[in-house]
Design a protein around this nucleic acid. Sequence first.
DNA 1: GTCTATACAAAGATAGAC
DNA 2: GTCTATCTTTGTATAGAC
Lengths: 192, 192
Amino acid sequence: MTINSNTADRILDAAQELIQRRGYNAISFNDIAEQVGIKKPSIIHHFPCKAALGRAVIKRYREHLATKLDGVANADDKSAVDAFDVYCTPYTDLGTGSDKICLCGSLAGEFMALPKDMRNEVSIFFESHIKWLENILAQGKKTGEFIFDDPLPMMAQLILDSLQGALIVKRATANTHHLHNVIRTLKAKLNP
Amino acid sequence: MTINSNTADRILDAAQELIQRRGYNAISFNDIAEQVGIKKPSIIHHFPCKAALGRAVIKRYREHLATKLDGVANADDKSAVDAFDVYCTPYTDLGTGSDKICLCGSLAGEFMALPKDMRNEVSIFFESHIKWLENILAQGKKTGEFIFDDPLPMMAQLILDSLQGALIVKRATANTHHLHNVIRTLKAKLNP
DNA sequence: GTCTATACAAAGATAGAC
DNA sequence: GTCTATCTTTGTATAGAC
């Protein structure tokens, strides 16, 4: 994780980490300010209100991840299995020795208590992941790396749901190998 | 859903529904009181504090479901497939035309922002579900209803994670058939 | 068992000095 | 760009009348 010197970015960093750990509705400007080392009205100078900060956090998270995923999906020297491994990396990282979950998994858990424009950002996140997964699964099926009978959208959905669910359930059950296990099981389904 | 006349139960009903819809940290005594049709100090007469109410909600939810699941698991006239179908019913119900998710899925999403004794109740919920699923999978494998190579704990974990994840992701993506699709895909893994 | 009234802390947000 | 001070609302919780 890069440490940003710019204040706006440090606010985004702190807000993101706090949401992943505790959730949007459980954190306050004070929590964020404390972590950044500033006072809470300073946040308002960079982001007009809490919802705008929340929206910016999701947008940055989504776009950062999209760049990485699109890179590996379009790389000629990367196989579908490589791409799938890259996709799983953030889940493994979060699920191993961290009490954080996916930012959008956290926000989706309190979806109905979110401002409307934050909900939109979260929805875009999941929809783009589904599309990316369907594309990779199609690639892998064509190259023979993946062998399965289920329709692509079903398989993509199962992967996304189980990885998101794994992060959430894992934190409440304290199994160190939870994410590794789920990913191994998913891979067995992709190539029995 | 039974409508309770007893005030304490009506408070529990309202709290449960609000947590499933919006999350624990996004709701207040006022929200609950309004839904029940009383004033907020009346809640304190039945539950000493918010955490105690939260704990009671989880305990009731967990025990109610456990009774149902243990019943079908031990019934001689029910197959493993029957039991699995019963297990899936609440997920299908929540995922179809409702903006609610599993109570404990909601709470697990904000796990780190929960009082300690509420966390305990949530953990017990998931651990007992894993055990129940492992038992049913073992039964079904013995009768030949289920055919799969993965170790029982891995399969049980995948089922729990993907169902919980499906509820959460579904609400942010508005796919009416999301839960049906995931369950169908899981069943295909249990009997290819 | 439910209410009104109230205490007290913390929330999001604004005004204005530096 | 950051601060202190303040406003307003809302949160959990208590006291005490009915």
